[in-house]
Design a protein around this nucleic acid. Structure first.
Lengths: 205, 205, 205, 205
DNA sequence: GATGAATGAGAGTTCATTCAT
DNA sequence: CATGAATGAACTCTCATTCAT
């Protein structure tokens, strides 16, 4: 099984190329959120992007590469948003910082919920490329750093759990059609702070 | 867009039929966990099941119906396991009951982790059929009943959150290759009990 | 290209067999007239006939044989009806006899119009079997005999033309949804008598 | 029952496209006349056209659309031929005009008899598209105009009958292997003029 | 004889990708 | 470089026919 190339073919420097590239990505995103991944065909993407299939293949080695790039884009955004939240919360109480970060995490599900959902599913079926893996690690590191800064033990593992648990909760809520974002933020905060407060179980007796 | 039929075509009563039907489902499951949903073609399923395509179509109106049936099977198992756990914990402390139920939830991710993951992704792309929706509600009801029995307020919403959060956490952990099941159980317990202990946020000052 | 067998497999003598046979034919007829020949599958015919596919194949060597039998049935009816009309008109004027025969011809299009149409199309795609060919000749002979009895020259050729022309006219009218059968009978009579009156062209100058 | 699309997918403007399109139609015609509609499969058409199936589907949404296009082509030809005949006969006697038009009608059966027959059968099984219906009306209008121009009453109904009757007669003759075209023309003329001469029946005592 | 589960060749159709223009 | 016509492997699904029960 030869892994398909997931990187763009060339990093376009010229203006026109960049525009084409962006148009392709945006077209793919729109199809993905409107009709799901089964409707994403290269021909349709090209058409929607106002570009010929040939041109599409000029910039992306294949369909998967487009998806991979969309995923990287989303992940980059997440890392950026999260880093900003972490920075803002640097001098704050743990509770406040958690609130900021939870809001940041939610943002990702709120701006283009269908796109986020679709990409998540796609991501699970695609071989993870190096950059994506790195970005995921980065995200957890940001959280871990914040936790460590507040003296929380075993920050890395806790960060992992908190990210996962937030992800599960917000995905489910958004998918269930939850509209009350404030309420959802509070529930996420409760989950996070609860986890942090609860004594690491297993110590008991 | 005509929704594809997701129910099996005939419920086989004879022995031979039942065997064929089961063979198809098992073959589909195996392909799914070994190669992912993109490798699941009706011809391959039939071949792997040692059955002709024609026979496959005698029992399932299409690929999607096979997937839907696998999903229903999994969900039925989950409900059963969870109900058993809830019953066992009837006279126990909240902490003990949580432990039982968390273990039950994990079981589902542990028996055939890849299959569970694949089906989850597939489920998100498929139109949900009535029975699946009902089974999901049932699961939350079981949890909500337990919570209510322990005097927890707003049991339904809390049940939703707990199920979602456990799901997120265990999926992520299993996917990350976590092998220490005891440890994972403890982390899940911590998340659940933490959420329950934490005062419903937003009340603060 | 081996011609498929178009004769029934056995001429059933027992009562039950005859019933099965008839049920199959009637089921096929019903499907044909309600949904067209593309919907005529052996499985559906069997089901509709309340018989197993196996039994169907006991009496007919294949799908085509069922169709061929239906065609023969229709042709036999036509010959019978037409012979009766010819007999009735034996002592009558030409005009009256023509009226009787035209009515007889129309009957065939009126009792089960859709079935007649469907079978006609099917017949054109099927290799003609001996009996059908004979029946068609028979029909023309009946007409030719009547014509000859009225002193018309070249009766065989004229019979051919009259049959064809009536067929064309009534098919088209029925297909166009004509409901006024009396009117249609008059038009057919006009066509037939007109043809007979008109001097064999080509003799002119 | 969703009606299949019968219009071509794109009207090809470039030279290459037009060639492909034409090749497909011609291949389909050849298969139809040589082996009948049951042998007309998209793969075979493509192969015979020296084109890939993909290309075929680029221009036609399916098998039926190819057939529909062939039918439209034939009908267009018929209308053209008939109009020309009607124009030629403008200053002539009724008998001469009839001769011209009868010859025109026959032409259609003579150039590619098998094709014409096959398409006729197919047409009866296909949902009629708008253009085809229009062309059929057009044909009758041409005839009706000629008749009206010669002072014939109820020209539309008569036109309908004449077209139908000619169709029936020539189809049957051609199918029966008639080779004497002059003779056939005379018989058609006799049928038409006879119908016109014969008093509209039903008036008689 | 009757049954109906099983068969599998083959039909229709799509879509990622290439390449002549 | 851009274009979009062409490609064809692969996929879903049907249905005439057989044969073990």
């Amino acid at each position: 099984m030869t892994e398909p190339e997931l990187r763009p073919r060339k990093t376009p420097l010229q203006t026109r190329s960049k525009a084409t590239c962006a148009a392709v990505l945006e077209a793919a995103a729109r199809i993905l959120e409107a009709e799901g991944s089964h409707a994403l065909t290269t021909n349709r993407v090209a058409e929607r992007a106002g570009v010929s299939v040939g041109s599409l293949y000029q910039y992306f080695p294949g369909k998967e590469a487009i998806l991979a790039e969309l995923i990287r884009g989303l992940r980059r955004d997440m890392v950026l948003t999260m880093r900003r939240a972490a920075d803002l919360g640097r001098e704050e109480s743990l509770a406040s910082t958690v609130e900021l970060m939870v809001a940041a995490a939610l943002e990702h599900h709120l701006t283009r919920p269908e796109l986020a959902r679709a990409l998540e599913r796609v991501e699970a079926e695609l071989p993870v490329d190096a950059e994506t893996r790195e970005l995921k690690g980065e995200l957890r590191n940001i959280v871990a750093d914040v936790l460590a800064g507040h003296g929380i033990a075993d920050a890395e593992c806790v960060a992992f759990d908190l990210v996962a648990l937030c992800h599960g909760l917000s995905s489910a809520a958004i998918e269930a059609g939850e509209k009350d974002i404030n309420g959802l933020t509070l529930r996420l905060k409760r989950a996070v702070l609860g986890y942090l407060i609860a004594e690491p179980a297993g110590t008991g007796r």
